[in-house]
Design a protein around this nucleic acid. Sequence first.
DNA 1: CATGAATGAGTTTTCATTCAT
DNA 2: GATGAATGAAAACTCATTCAT
Lengths: 196, 196, 196, 196
Amino acid sequence: MARKKVQEERRLQILRALDTCLQEKSFEKTSIKDIAREAGVNHGVLHYYFSGKEDILLSYIDYVIDDYQAQAREWMGGRDLEHYTKSQFIDEVFAFVNNRITLNKSLSRIFVEIWEIALYNGEVRGKLREAYTRWVEELGAMISRHIEDKTLARNVSIAMVAFWEGMALFSTVFPPGTLAMEEVLKGFQQRIVDIL
Amino acid sequence: MARKKVQEERRLQILRALDTCLQEKSFEKTSIKDIAREAGVNHGVLHYYFSGKEDILLSYIDYVIDDYQAQAREWMGGRDLEHYTKSQFIDEVFAFVNNRITLNKSLSRIFVEIWEIALYNGEVRGKLREAYTRWVEELGAMISRHIEDKTLARNVSIAMVAFWEGMALFSTVFPPGTLAMEEVLKGFQQRIVDIL
Amino acid sequence: MARKKVQEERRLQILRALDTCLQEKSFEKTSIKDIAREAGVNHGVLHYYFSGKEDILLSYIDYVIDDYQAQAREWMGGRDLEHYTKSQFIDEVFAFVNNRITLNKSLSRIFVEIWEIALYNGEVRGKLREAYTRWVEELGAMISRHIEDKTLARNVSIAMVAFWEGMALFSTVFPPGTLAMEEVLKGFQQRIVDIL
Amino acid sequence: MARKKVQEERRLQILRALDTCLQEKSFEKTSIKDIAREAGVNHGVLHYYFSGKEDILLSYIDYVIDDYQAQAREWMGGRDLEHYTKSQFIDEVFAFVNNRITLNKSLSRIFVEIWEIALYNGEVRGKLREAYTRWVEELGAMISRHIEDKTLARNVSIAMVAFWEGMALFSTVFPPGTLAMEEVLKGFQQRIVDIL
DNA sequence: CATGAATGAGTTTTCATTCAT
DNA sequence: GATGAATGAAAACTCATTCAT
């Protein structure tokens, strides 16, 4: 039991180290030794806990996706969505997404990195597809409470996620303040209110 | 003069080869020899025409951006935007962007690759910033003809580009038909019509 | 005493595991962990019972040689060689050697492996020299009972062992039935009868 | 043309370097850098001329086998076997094999190494099988000129090769003079004369 | 005694780059 | 200008061995 914990902790330590490394180098350019150095462990242990660099990557992606899904669950659990009015609901959703995702620059960077890896790696692509599908579906389910047309609900949720991702993309390239990100997000939010 | 032309042709040949290579491997994993093989030239010449791998990359990005700006100019030149009605204008813009950009999967892949490189490379980031800034501005200028509020025009154009980019991102991960891309694009287009 | 037995049993368990491993990988490519896995023990204990990988090897070679000498002794002990006729004797010797050694493919493989190690390892070479010397001498002694010329007896026994080893070598490379091994062995046996 | 020559020369240089290395270390323990050092070239070139360590090995084995088949051809070409008497023929064959093969200690070492590799490597095993098959067949064809029974001819040639190989094996382990190698070989030769 | 986490030397391989021809 | 041979740095990975628990 204690053993398992130690193992899991070590793995997390390594994944967190990779997370840090990715803020300054691409995964491709990040060497096993870089990660080890950042984690403060011998590079050999990375091969002890993971079967190779690809395994680290895949585990890392799971870790990132799990983490942000946990955040989403936590957010949902913390409020009584059932009794929200339409605009209260939208306010809350945007507040959450804007602050935790779209305007979270370091998360956005990580995701751009993952999108790129997905371009050439089917397994990563699968993970991404699954994560976004779930996101769209859960958002769609929430929207459905405020709208009749289910197809519209789904399409709106796809559009919302696409828009958020596009904005996140911009946040990695434009220095804060350059693009009127907040304003644009607010404008978009207003349109969504109008639609629902 | 002729000399210059030959040189320029050789460079283009190499950049086109890289373009092909990027459809199956990341830039990082694409070797100079891969590009040379694809271009049908000896790998040594790549160092004659370019100062190194990074130089090829930078030139390639210019080439890609120039190419798509040329397409945009050609499109704009080919029609009399001045006399378009609002909805005609929007129809045309979406038709162009959807077909040539958002749903152009191989272009989207290239751009995801470039976005990722920009994450860690200031020069590339600059090129991207400039390209998107220009895009937003030109779109904003066009929109301005149909709307009073100039700030709104700009914000709408930012939102449009962000949305298109998000959809392009999705197109690289979701098999065609999985997400109701066309429908979502059409729905979004309708909202833009409503706004203007 | 009991302690010693347990220890000895553990060592044997490990050596038998190595024996199994060598059927599919060279000693060089067989890792300590491979052996441990095969033996069903933790790899750490291999360093407890043996001083290192080389020590395992040396012990293993002793084990193999001891084992096959034990077989020989058992064979000799089981029959009254004193009263055999010349051809009875030859029949018996060949029957034993052919079945237990020359045509024992997995033993032959092990020996090829050991011969190769002996090429570069003086200690192993010594063990091999000693084992073959003893074999030649014991065979020579048996032959001497049926022949006057002692030098001839020795030379014949050397030739016999060489021939058997050569045939064993072939058995590791030629699929059974490819070379007419049995027939050749029988023909050779006949010549030996003729000589004695 | 000249290019090809240079390439072939370089490859040979590397294979000869491996040959030298194998006199003191097994192939497994010989590193690419060892071979490069021995050949007096940068280790990178080994990957330029060969696709990897296995390719070097395979090429080397071809080189060794070709070399010794060339020796055999040269030997055969140099004498008028048609007009030899039986015992002249046997004399010559043994003289050649004894000196060039069986008692050529460094060649024997190489072959023991190759036999061992063949144990675990199907491609090498195939090469060995082919080489020995050819050897047995050519020897059998020569013997057939002096004997009626074709099956016997073949079996005798198998036995001869097996015996020679066994003796070669001994030569790698017993210091010269320890075993009465020459005498044994002479005795064996006499038996062959008797048979034919 | 047993375990398994940790170490670090060593191996093969890749590749941008240089340079003589 | 083109060619391809050569260089050397750096990467991922393996593994015997050590050692604290």
